[in-house]
């Protein structure tokens, strides 16, 4: 991730808007690992390397690289896998024209999660707990990730088709709660450096 600030990427980076939770979480991790000053410098340097104003979602970033509008983009793995596994030929070609790399944000690869929580005033607590527990079984995990192409978090859960295309990686061990705590600060930094 630090390489993205490098001069060789001037005019080469595509990224989505700073209001997006993926970018807020990513910067939240950089703030946690290296402090807000370094995080501001990182955001500023990456923004200065943009090929175009932030626009579109993760899929649009990957397709922009495939079309040659930029050479690097920040995206989650599962959007790339969906393109590779899609029924659309144009999608398959976009995946084939790009390469997915897991890059470290300082200490392991930054990850996003799909989480579940129960509202404190939930009227059917037992049912809610049962649902969440089901989602944490191998069967629940398989159902959840078949379409989304996310990684199951349970050993023994069936992997969705397409994940075998991906390289190995070491994920960051940062407490995910920190990302939420840093979210407001991350948005302010993005706003300050002009990352739309």
């Amino acid at each position: 991730m630090t390489d993205l600030t490098d001069e060789r990427f001037t005019g080469e980076i595509c990224a989505r808007s700073s209001t997006n939770i993926y970018n807020l979480s990513l910067l939240g991790e950089i703030i946690a690992r290296r402090g807000s000053e370094a995080a501001t410098e990182w955001a500023q340097a990456v923004k200065d390397n943009f090929a175009r104003d932030p626009q579109g979602g993760d899929t649009a970033q990957i397709k922009a690289v495939a079309a040659g509008a930029c050479s690097v983009a920040i995206a989650n793995h599962y959007y790339w896998v969906r393109l590779a596994e899609s029924g659309s030929e144009a999608d398959n070609e976009a995946a084939a024209a790009t390469e997915l790399a897991f890059v470290s944000a300082g200490d392991g690869v930054h990850t996003n999660v799909t989480g579940a929580a129960m509202a404190a005033n939930a009227p059917n607590r037992d049912a809610a707990r049962a649902l969440i527990e089901f989602l944490a079984t191998p069967q629940g995990q398989s159902l959840l990730v078949t379409e989304t192409k996310e990684f199951p978090v349970i050993e023994g859960a069936e992997q969705p088709e397409g994940l075998e295309r991906l390289p190995e990686f070491q994920e960051s061990q940062l407490d995910l709660g920190v990302l939420g705590e840093n979210q407001t600060q991350a948005q302010k930094i993005f706003d300050r450096v002009g990352w739309k």
Binding site: G56, A60, A64, A67, A69, A90, A94
Partner: peptide, 9 residues
């Protein structure tokens, strides 16, 4: 109309 869309392609 995106850069990877049918029109620009």
């Amino acid at each position: 109309l995106s850069v990877a869309g049918p029109v620009q392609s």
